[in-house]
Design a protein around this nucleic acid. Structure first.
Lengths: 258, 258
DNA sequence: CACTATTTGTCCGTATGTATG
DNA sequence: TCATACATACGGACAAATAGT
């Protein structure tokens, strides 16, 4: 490992020495910094790790602390340590190919629908929670269509979890019908034309329920999409909340600049 | 605070009890869970906090640990504590779902730049990790410009963490210059015209370093953006990886349908 | 008014983990 | 390896303020 690479690690380490990080043990912070460099391929197989003395001088810690950081890497078989020779990386980095469906704007939605299978978990007419009720402009006990779905890719692996609330639907929201037609098609069949859409993308941790459906651990980071669809009068008729497994799904935006 | 709200917190806490988080003190983890509930408005002004004994039984910790979590909240003036009465929330939550800036397509970038302050953590020429090296088509030891930045909103709260790798830059990547000009402007000044951009949006958990910079818990779900910028010959010249705190930042897409 | 349960404040001792020199 | 210091976490004990019976 080059000394300036080490200084780079130190610089970023210094910049983040506030808040939560200060509560984490020093040796573990150094261990993490070095581990990141190894698993990212910045230091590759066979490279020499910084010596304990280098870590002592660069990170300004005691030798025991530096030693422990390296020991933990050795315990994970990321490096090997030899007296007189130093520590060397044994982890072989391999590029991870990106797979899974990519989605762009809403036009691609129907295409996406063809290349993936949808499983409706629940279709019901019920009273929405307060947040949703206010957004849809509903009275107290009014019921609307709630649909929970899971999308799977070609291999049958789940990658998306949807919860949607739709007002003004009188027919078509049946399990059989939703296997053949997309939700937007059914809304259109009910005489509602959606003219305006607002989407926000964000991220949120997986709840236990969603984690089980998407085959991830609870608390895992998920890409989240909130789509508000308005009709020609500007009324919100459809509220969609989508959660995506980032391993199997990415949101692609491609643009040319002039 | 209702007991089932507390159990919800505990469930989320359990879910994230793997990996990095376990190195953070118990009292601080509980403190964070409660603080999130307060600043998110789950528990609002005047509400009663869980008692020390409730925390003890729900989180299965000693009273000292539970007490310290509440004491830290009191030290931040988020709650007040009284003998015999319990602890009550003094923080007034205002319902602004998105405090930070909203961003759409790349045209808004310069505008975004004006409404937020940028802090460059490190600017240097170094050898990138293998992943980046392959994408940029570099030989083994070649060095490129690496810039790590943090964006803050009007209140000075950090909401974005950027790491960028740029090839073919000979001048202008200095700390002073980057305070006045955006990175894309400097690239343009170097005679490189970016004609094509590919962006993918995804989600990933915060590393301890990023967590510290963005003032979130390690492992928290972050919105991630990867932007690949190409010049007129189709060569990748800039690789940007952005991480956004979803509490302060959402990616808005607004479209009209025909 | 006393009595009691609740809830926080303060103190003790002990064990373990972290970090230095 | 040793001695030292500090932080974390546990269990327990008692005191003091509050609210209800």
């Amino acid at each position: 490992m080059l000394i300036d690479q080490l200084n780079t690690l130190k610089a970023e380490w210094d910049a983040s020495q506030s808040g939560v990080l200060s509560r984490i043990p020093l040796y573990h912070q150094i261990y993490t910094a070095l581990k990141d460099a190894i698993v990212n391929g910045t230091i590759t197989f066979g490279d020499k790790m910084p010596t304990e003395q280098q870590l002592v001088s660069v990170f300004d810690v005691s030798r025991i602390t530096a030693k422990r950081a390296l020991d933990e890497l050795a315990a994970e078989n990321l490096i090997v340590r030899h007296r007189g020779k130093g520590s060397h990386v044994t982890y072989r980095w391999e590029p991870s190919p990106v797979k899974g469906p990519l989605i762009g704007l809403i036009k691609n939605m129907s295409e996406l629908f063809q290349h993936s299978s949808t499983k409706a978990i629940s279709i019901e007419k019920t009273t929405p929670p307060a947040e949703v009720r206010i957004e849809l402009g509903l009275e107290g006990g009014e019921k609307v269509h709630k649909v929970v779905r899971v999308h799977c890719d070609e291999d049958g692996e789940p990658y998306a979890y949807y919860v949607s609330w739709t007002v003004g639907i009188s027919r078509g929201f049946t399990r059989r019908n939703m296997q053949e037609h997309s939700r937007l098609e059914i809304i259109s069949q009910n005489g509602i034309s959606l003219t305006h859409v607002k989407q926000t993308l964000s991220a949120e941790p997986a709840t236990i329920r969603v984690a089980a459906a998407l085959d991830v651990v609870p608390g895992a980071a998920l890409l989240s999409l909130t789509r508000r669809s308005f009709d020609e009068t500007g009324r919100l008729v459809d509220l969609l909340h989508g959660l995506y497994n980032p391993k199997r799904f990415k949101y692609l935006i491609e643009l040319s600049l002039e």
